[in-house]
Computed example of a mutant assay.
Amino acid sequence: MTALGGLKALGQLEGRTLLIEGAAGGVGSAAVEIARALGATVIGTASERNHAFLTSLGALPVTYGAGLAERLASLTPSGVDLVLDAAASGSLTDLVDIVGDPDRVVTVADHVNAQRLGVRVANAVNDATLLAEAGALGEQGRYAPRIEQTYPLEEIAKAHAHSERGHVQGKIVVTI
C-alpha cells in the first residue's frame, strides 16, 4: 500500500519514465512491479548486486549515488518524468535536480528533506481502495510481493537486525 500510495501521488504513469530510488527494497520492488503494470517505463536505483533482481521485475537498473544524473542521461536520453524515493538515502536534492521540479518527486521515506525541498510525502495509510487495487493486480498476475526472509515472532530481534543491515530484496516477514 505504501508503494501504491506513492505512485498514485505522482499521477498518471502510463507512457511516463519513472525513476525509483531504492528499487530493490520492500517498497521499491513493489513500486517497480505496480508502476510497470500501470504502463510506466521504470528505472530503478540499486547496488550492482541487485541489478539482476530489478531486471527480473521489469526495471532498467542503475547504480545509485554520485554521478546518477550522468548515468541516467546515457540510459534514457529523453529524461526522467517522475521520481519515487523509497530509500531516504540523502539523495532527494539530486532527485529533484534530475527532474527539475519538486512537484514531480514523491518520497515515502525522507520526510525531513521533503519539507525543506517542497517534495510531496506519501505516508503509508490503511486504505481499502489501494489494497483492493493491489489485490486485483495480484490476481491478474501483474504484481507479486517479494519476500526475502521469514522469521517466527520469537526471532523478531533477528528480523530487525536483518532489516537494519539494509540492501534487502523485497520484504522481511515476521510470522505470528
Rank of each mutant, 00 (worst) to 15 (best):
V112N: 10
G135T: 13
R71A: 10
G90K: 04
G67R: 07
I156P: 00
L95I: 11
R36F: 01
S78V: 03
N123F: 15
N123P: 08
S29Q: 09
E33M: 14
E148D: 09
P145G: 07
L131P: 00
S163T: 11
Q140L: 10
A122V: 00
I147H: 06
A122S: 07
E33C: 02
L82V: 03
L75Y: 01
R49L: 09
S91E: 14
R142C: 02
S74C: 11
F53V: 11
T63G: 13
A46I: 02
E154P: 10
G65I: 01
S163C: 08
E154H: 14
A69R: 15
H111Q: 13
E133Q: 10
L137E: 02
H167K: 10
A40W: 03
L131E: 08
A37S: 01
N126S: 12
A114D: 06
Q149E: 14
V83P: 02
A128N: 07
T150G: 15
E139Q: 15
E70K: 10
L75I: 07
G79I: 01
R165T: 05
A86R: 00
G44K: 00
E148R: 02
I34E: 01
I156H: 11
T129W: 10
A59G: 09
N113R: 13
A37H: 05
I147D: 03
E70S: 08
L130S: 14
L54H: 06
P61M: 08
G79F: 07
Q169H: 07
V42K: 08
L84G: 04
G39P: 01
G39V: 01
P102Y: 04
H111F: 14
A87P: 06
D101Q: 12
V80G: 02
L60K: 15
N50R: 14
G141W: 06
